[in-house]
Write a protein that binds this DNA or RNA. Structure first.
Lengths: 191, 191
DNA sequence: CTATACATGTAACAAGTTACATGATTAA
DNA sequence: TTAATCATGTAACTTGTTACATGTATAG
């Protein structure tokens, strides 16, 4: 869908906003918090990206304002048109399954460091991922995941984050061990 | 008062180019292929991003042209200044360990679909990841990973990709099974 | 000859980040 | 009263994608 002069726009953020507002009416501020916690490991976004997108969604008629609160708080909900567009996106466009992760890129170039230092960096990665995993486990444990289909679906998605951070931590630890075993030495590699 | 922009530029592409050219002299065309194969699962990049960046690197003195070939081919290598800057990046800047992956985002919103369709999408994901894994396994099998520290380091990085695609495939399969077991049904969730 | 791969570049746009900017409400 | 949090927005810039644009060498 959404081809403008042949260019395919992804607009993941746009659909994510509609999706969150389809679940429950919320303000831009609330949405920002959602992107900082549950969605942080799938599609992080800042408020500076969210507010202008909400304006565009209002314009499209995919969301509407349903209330207001103190301090200029504006509460929105998804319209039927918005939910319909979200479903269209989910069913009629191909997901982008690209992986792009800076720590893996860095790993490619650690042969330029002293092996000791390279190994240490892999261990730092491992610890950082373990910390992220612990954070996510806290989040997973603190929420009520059985209350609605949306929450249970969120739990399925969050599971990916848990598994990914566990994997990355183990990978980095494994790489550190390989480097310590001499993998990056100039001389012959170990058996 | 020094508000001299505390803007942290990441410039991963810049350092990746220097890193590849530190290993072996290459042209922009060769680099583009590297980003399309071995680096595709860590930091994909198109030629339209690579050529302008090479010009900037020349300007910085981090690379230099060492030869030319037919059809205007230009071969570059990293300078000592470039390698030094790469090492500085690796040792003195914090990696961005963010995960951003569209299929996980989509998973959050599949509660808006019929459970059957949601399960089918998870199975499609699983198959797509398995295909990516098979591709990467081919690549891993086709290269000589023992010839240099750089190659052996590349193998460590590539291992992350192998493990990630395996994990994502298994996760999607698991999610499909959960959905088929009734996780997204309106009624009570299964035990 | 002619299609494919090689080879380099630019332009227009989309997406994302950091900083700037402002102000209201609430709790200590 | 003052710091933290709530709350919304814009500006400037960086990064990444798709399309445009051009031309050469080689293999069938």
């Amino acid at each position: 869908m959404s081809r403008v002069t042949g260019k395919i726009k992804r607009m993941s953020l746009r659909y994510a906003l509609v999706g969150l507002l389809a679940e429950e009416p919320m303000s831009g501020y609330d949405l920002t918090k959602r992107f900082a916690v549950s969605l942080a490991n799938a599609w992080p976004a800042q408020h500076s990206q969210i507010y202008p997108e909400l304006a565009r969604l209002l314009d499209l008629g995919w969301i509407r304002q349903t209330g207001q609160g103190p301090r200029g708080r504006k509460v929105y909900e998804a319209t039927p048109e918005g939910v319909s567009a979200l479903r269209e996106w989910l069913t009629s466009t191909e997901p982008d399954r690209t992986l792009r992760h800076e720590p893996i890129l860095r790993a490619f170039f650690r042969w330029t460091l002293e092996p000791d230092q390279a190994a240490q960096q892999f261990r730092t990665d491992a610890r950082a991922y373990a910390a992220k995993l612990a954070e996510l486990e806290d989040l997973a444990g603190s929420l009520d995941w059985e209350s609605s289909p949306a929450d249970r679906c969120g739990r399925l998605a969050l599971e990916a984050g848990l598994r990914l951070y566990r994997l990355l931590s183990e990978w980095a630890e494994w790489a550190a061990e390989r480097v310590e075993a001499g993998t990056l030495d100039d001389s012959d590699p170990p058996a």
